[in-house]
Simulated assay, not measured.
Amino acid sequence: MSKPVLLLNAGSSSIKYQVIDADDEEVLAKGLIQRIGSDEATIEHEVGGESFDDVSPMPDHTVALEQMAAMFDAHGPALSNVRAVGHRAVHGGDRFSSACLIDDSVVQALEELSPLAPLHNPPGIAGIRAAQKALPDVPHVAIFDTAFFADLPAEAYTYALDADVAEQHKVRRYGFHGTSHNFVSHAAAEFLGRDYSDLKQIVCHLGNGASMSAIDRGHVVDTSMGLTPLEGLVMGTRSGDVDPGLIFYLNREGLSVDDIDTLLNKKSGMLGLAGASDMRDVEAAVDGGDEKARVAWDVYIHRLVHYIGAYIAILGGVDVITFTAGVGENSATVRRDVCARLTALGVTLDEDANAERNKEPHSISAQGSPVTVLVVPTNEELQMAREVKAVVEQG
Rank of each mutant, 00 (worst) to 15 (best):
D278C: 04
I301A: 02
A296Q: 09
A313K: 02
K267P: 14
G328T: 05
A274I: 12
A310T: 11
A274Y: 00
F323S: 13
V318G: 10
G309M: 06
I314V: 14
I247V: 15
D278N: 09
A276T: 05
L304Q: 12
F248R: 13
G328N: 04
V305F: 01
A325S: 13
D319I: 05
I312K: 04
S239N: 07
N265H: 10
I260W: 00
V242L: 12
D259G: 11
R280K: 10
V327S: 02
T324W: 02
V257M: 12
K266C: 10
D241W: 01
R294M: 10
S268N: 09
L315I: 05
I314F: 00
T262Q: 14
P244G: 03
G289P: 03
L255D: 11
L273W: 00
D258E: 15
N265R: 03
A276K: 12
T324I: 08
K266V: 10
K292Q: 13
F248Y: 14
G272S: 13
A276N: 14
V295F: 01
D290L: 03
I260T: 06
R252D: 15
F248E: 14
D281L: 11
V257W: 02
L255W: 04
H306V: 07
G275K: 02
G269E: 08
E253K: 15
A313I: 08
G317D: 08
I321L: 11
E253G: 14
D287F: 00
F323L: 09
E253I: 07
G275N: 08
F248N: 13
G326S: 11
V305P: 11
M270W: 00
G240K: 01
A313H: 03
D258G: 13
A325H: 01
S277E: 13
L264I: 11
Y307P: 14
A310H: 02
V318D: 12
S268L: 11
I247C: 11
D243I: 10
S239V: 06
D258K: 02
F323D: 13
D287G: 07
I312P: 05
D259E: 13
I247E: 08
D287P: 00
S277A: 15
E283F: 00
D259C: 02
V286L: 05
G328I: 07
G316S: 09
A285R: 14
S256H: 02
H302F: 11
I321Q: 07
I321R: 03
G289C: 06
V286C: 12
D287C: 05
L273H: 07
V242T: 11
V242Q: 05
V242C: 10
N265Y: 07
G289Q: 02
G326Y: 02
I308W: 03
F248M: 13
G272V: 12
H306G: 12
D290T: 03
I247A: 08
A284N: 13
V295S: 04
L315G: 07
L264E: 12
K267D: 15
D243S: 10
F323W: 07
G289F: 01
L315M: 10
I301T: 06
D319S: 08
V282A: 09
K292M: 08
G288Y: 00
G328H: 03
G245A: 06
F323M: 09
G272F: 06
L271Q: 13
D319W: 01
G240N: 07
L263W: 05
S268P: 15
D259Y: 00
K292H: 01
V305Q: 08
L264N: 07
D287V: 13
A296F: 03
